[in-house]
Design a protein around this nucleic acid. Structure first.
Length: 216
DNA sequence: CGTTTTTGACCTGCGC
DNA sequence: GCGCAGGTCAAAAACG
């Protein structure tokens, strides 16, 4: 994907807050490497007060947002983002779950985990998750979700909520929970890709083929 | 009254 | 095989 087409997507009004576009284009979508055929999806881009800042790319599958800047901004903060694809089931990079995420998990998948991944590798929708600092659990990502379950995860005091996209024939799911170590953090995990545009983005209807909407 | 949320039951995968 | 934990279902309740 060329930078010009990416820029054009930004110009198509995907970012609801004007000041968002430069910040996101500077880091988020457009610095993602590995010849990704898609930019990162809009959940954080859509959120009104999300303000990503400088990045580091330890390996090319994760992007981190320096928490040292968190206090500079009010509202939710995007702190980290993980990604997996259907070809590579990044179980070892899973953001959620009761297990602690160690350094090893950030740097890669250990041999043990690779074994598990191989064993559990099945048809699986691409997933990614990200952390935000937010008072609200469910960020407005432009899609309409229906809650279908809630579960208390072991060793955490906050329940995990399960949502499905309400659009017909759309099997995209997301899970939302608060970080046990820091309840100010909300972890959102998306699974699957939308086969449609965000439902409440009616003012964008003159841009019916904005692919960015479908990338997660 | 249609839609969404709640919540206990049920299902499934994994480790032992 | 058993128990545990995470994920999903579905009936009832709540909501607009």
């Amino acid at each position: 994907m060329s930078s010009s087409s990416q820029q054009s997507m930004v110009n198509q009004g995907l970012f609801q807050e004007k000041e968002m576009a430069p910040a996101v284009s500077q880091m988020g979508f457009f610095t993602f490497p590995q010849n990704l055929t898609s930019p990162y999806p809009p959940p954080f881009a859509f959120h009104q007060s999300l303000k990503p800042f400088d990045i580091a790319l330890p390996d090319l599958t994760e992007t981190f947002f320096s928490p040292k800047h968190a206090s500079d901004f009010g509202g939710p903060q995007l702190l980290s983002l993980h990604r997996s694809t259907s070809d590579f089931w990044a179980w070892g990079n899973e953001c959620l779950g009761s297990k602690k995420i160690g350094v090893e998990d950030h740097l890669g998948v250990s041999a043990m985990k690779m074994k598990r991944i191989k064993a559990r590798r099945k048809v699986r929708e691409p997933r990614f998750c990200f952390k935000t600092m937010s008072d609200v659990d469910v960020l407005d990502d432009g899609y309409k979700w229906r809650k279908y379950g809630q579960k208390v995860v072991k060793n955490t005091q906050h329940p995990r909520s399960y949502y499905r996209c309400t659009q017909d024939n759309c099997r995209v799911k997301k899970r939302v929970e608060r970080l046990a170590e820091d309840p100010r953090m909300v972890i959102t995990t998306y699974e699957g890709r939308h086969a449609h545009s965000p439902s409440h983005d009616l003012h964008d209807s003159h841009h019916p083929h904005s692919n960015l909407n479908n990338f997660f």
